[in-house]
């Protein structure tokens, strides 16, 4: 069902984790649909993404696209990171099954959300960046056990 690259990124995900005092953090997705992605960016004074980490709750494709997206933006300028589209992520993974294409969209959205957070914090505007959709994963019907 998954390409070798997807399986590789699922089994050995790159850049899993958190960045303390990150320049920007973006969380997208919805637990109802079974996917939540969070991306942390460390951006230096020259606007270069020095580090990028992720945490994901989701299927194999969700983990793999997060992993690939972090690889694609690491070391890039903000402008270059804006060009990492869902299509680019999918191509880098040698494709995804049709029902999993939304995972790659989520990865693109997660990067954009983290960049938006960065831009807000620094009072700057990033060309072509739109405000991310409201994050709706918090505590809907959570139960404790």
């Amino acid at each position: 069902m998954y390409s070798e690259k997807v399986m590789d990124h699922f089994q050995n995900p790159r850049n899993v984790g958190e960045i303390e005092d990150a320049s920007g953090v973006g969380t997208v997705g919805n637990a109802k649909c079974g996917d939540i992605m969070r991306i942390y960016l460390d951006i230096d004074g020259d606007g270069i993404i020095r580090d990028c980490k992720f945490k994901t709750f989701g299927c194999g494709a969700a983990v793999a696209t997060s992993s690939m997206a972090t690889e694609l933006v690491k070391g890039k300028s903000i402008e270059e990171a804006m060009k990492v589209t869902n299509k680019a992520v999918m191509e880098a993974l040698d494709g995804l099954p049709p029902v999993k294409v939304h995972c790659s969209l989520l990865a693109e959205e997660a990067i954009h959300a983290a960049l938006w957070d960065y831009a807000e914090k620094h009072g700057i505007k990033i060309e072509g960046l739109k405000e991310p959709k409201a994050d709706i994963h918090e505590g809907e019907g959570q139960e404790e056990y």
Binding site: P13, V16, E18, T27, A31, I36, M37, R38, K55, T56, F57, V63, H137
Partner: peptide, 8 residues
């Protein structure tokens, strides 16, 4: 869970 933002 180590990978999960919900767990975090």
């Amino acid at each position: 869970r180590e990978m999960s933002p919900l767990y975090e």
